[in-house]
Simulated assay, not measured.
Amino acid sequence: MKTRSILRLSSSTISCKRPDSMFVSVRQISTGGKRPKKKIYHRDYQLDKVMDLQKKPSLILQLKSVIQSQNQQCLLLRDLEKEVGFVAKWNFMSVIEKYPSIFHGGGCSGKQLPFVTLTRKAKKIASEESEARILMEPILVKNLRKLLMLSIDCRVPLEKVEFIGSELGLPKDFKKSLILKYPEYFSIKDVNGRAYLNLENWDSSLAITAREERFAREGVLASGGGLKRVRIMKDGNYLGPFAFKMCFAAGFRPNKSYLEELQRWQKMEFPSPYLNARRFDVADPKARKRVVAVLHELLSLTMEKRMTSTQLDAFHSEYLLPSKLVLCLIKHHGIFYITNKGARSTVFLKEAYDGTRLVDKCPMLMFNDKFVTLSGRNEISSFNSMNSSQVVT
């Protein structure tokens, strides 16, 4: 099912005023007979900027991979179009010209054809990628197991895993390097002519959400199993066992009735996203809150804590996601953010970012930043300074 565009949603719920804001209907405090103003769901310009900041680093890393896949790690420029397409090749030609500290061009003399390869310094840093992938392997195995545990039948079509492979950080040969390497965890089985990735063994120790792990790190849960005394904050945050971290946009000013309703929702108990969704009535408010937890956990399993809305919607049947997925994401705009920057709409897990900086980074992202820093250009240096952080374990 194709993701519905935000602009096509019912005007009774959401209407578009201008490109940088959307109306969200919420209850208002009485204003003495005056028509109440609607609360505005503001764009988050910092998360929009993330999409712009990643464009050039993405091209640099993609070109690096193309060069490394060639014989002798040397790419003939005549083959660039075959690798990336006619339109994209001009962007890559620009990258080659702009970043001589990373890419070295040669040829054109005598019978030698024009080519591009990595500079000596770039090759040295690129050699560290294998170490980063070794560090990534246990993280990928754990996250892939959790991805299957979230599904209703502990299995996901293999094509859908491949669809989000780059977001998870999976290598292109993950079927051989991970699936076949760990037969105690994974298997590939044919179901009605379709290949599925199956979970072989359930591990209760993995059925802990990223939200619960954050609470443990922050000491919200007392050592005796109880809870520390906490209070509802004016920004909607509540450090209870069933609460989510709220990160409203700077321009959003929730009123009293909105916060009261949010407080009730934050305190509401809900089943673990790792329990089978078939056990719950979809009309139950607790089951609807559980869906938010499923989406939160799915995004938490990705390297950059984001997916395109199309990728999320692809898992509709495996996780019993709501038919109006975009509406669900917009309703919980303190947790998720949808940006239309870039080629596709992208859904962010807001708490994972501090402005434009991704708070926690896996070894692969740290390696990518180190390689891209070779460019020495201001916009790339800015990208890395805003994304420096610790390793995810």
Rank of each mutant, 00 (worst) to 15 (best):
K189C: 13
L365K: 02
Q62N: 13
W202H: 12
A249C: 13
A216M: 06
M233W: 07
K39R: 08
V191H: 05
T209M: 03
D369H: 09
E318L: 07
G334H: 06
E159Q: 14
C74T: 15
K34I: 12
F215M: 15
S25P: 00
K55V: 14
V141R: 11
L77E: 01
S10C: 15
G106T: 10
K361T: 14
D20Q: 02
K331A: 10
S205V: 01
K64P: 06
S323V: 10
V291Y: 03
K172Y: 15
D284Y: 03
V220E: 07
D360P: 06
F280G: 15
E162W: 08
T393M: 07
L135K: 14
V391T: 10
K111L: 15
A216Y: 09
I188G: 04
G165D: 03
G355R: 04
Y99P: 00
S177E: 12
R288N: 06
A249N: 14
R214A: 15
S223V: 14
I60C: 02
A287Q: 14
P285E: 13
N143Y: 07
Q72F: 12
L77N: 04
P19Y: 14
G236S: 01
L77P: 00
S309P: 03
D190N: 12
P19K: 12
H333Q: 10
M51S: 08
S127H: 11
F244G: 02
A314T: 03
K55R: 13
A287C: 07
S272R: 03
V347F: 06
F315I: 03
S205I: 02
F252N: 03
I40Y: 00
V294N: 00
R344D: 09
S166L: 11
T119K: 01
K142M: 09
K350A: 04
